[in-house]
Amino acid sequence: MADKEKKKKKKVAKDDAPADAPAAEPAPERTSRGSRKAKRTGSNVFSMFSQKQVAEFKEAFQLMDHDKDGIINKNDLRATFDSLGRLASDKELDDMVSEAPGPINFTQLLTLFANRMSGGSDDDDVVINAFKSFDDEGKIDSEKLRHALMTWGDKFSSDEVDDAFDQMVIDDKGYIDTAKLITMLTASAEEEEEEAAA
């Protein structure tokens, strides 16, 4: 009976605690090393991109995944390059596939993009590499570029492509000089940066 009275007194004492007294906080979880365990937040590779960017990457992934198995492999890359009219060597394809530590599913592809973006890649390098992917012996087929601009990513309208092409030098066979195009695009970006700084 004495035990019941002690428990009752403890309960009453607990209820009588002043309202402004701080509530007892549970002790933080500790890992085996004794350090505090951080609460897990929703940070992942998807949070590095806007919803629009993720949707665009998803669309690109689906276009590249020719066999629709959810994994981009060497054959998928070969088919993608073939559809763009560019032949890729086995070494190039192997190098691309080996950049990932495992099979390239959509999340892995986003991780590769995120790593590239956080690697301090210069915007000019991105422009140069983008247009070099269309380059064939110093020239870019304007119709293939038109198709790409109107099909993938932030899709251009026909009028927008025409306006862009008005700024480019296109020869009578429909080819754009790659070096001149890259110079024009990177020089205008530098001029914009200089104007913004002034």
Rank of each mutant, 00 (worst) to 15 (best):
D15N: 12
V126L: 12
G70I: 07
G119H: 03
A130G: 12
E190M: 10
L112H: 07
E191I: 12
L84S: 01
V161W: 08
K52M: 01
N129S: 13
K4M: 14
E99P: 03
G85F: 10
L181P: 07
I182C: 14
K155A: 12
D125T: 05
L110G: 00
D154C: 13
G42M: 06
A100R: 02
L93S: 10
A21K: 06
D159T: 13
D76Y: 01
K11Q: 14
M1F: 15
S89F: 12
T186K: 01
V127F: 15
I182E: 00
D67Y: 07
D90Y: 02
F134W: 06
Y175R: 10
N44P: 10
D141A: 15
S157T: 04
D154W: 08
A187K: 09
D95L: 12
I176A: 08
A27R: 05
K91R: 13
R86C: 10
N115V: 07
A60P: 00
D136K: 03
H66G: 10
H147M: 06
P103T: 04
D154L: 11
S50W: 04
K39A: 15
M1I: 05
E191V: 15
V126P: 00
K9F: 05
T80H: 09
K74R: 10
F81K: 04
S133G: 14
F165M: 03
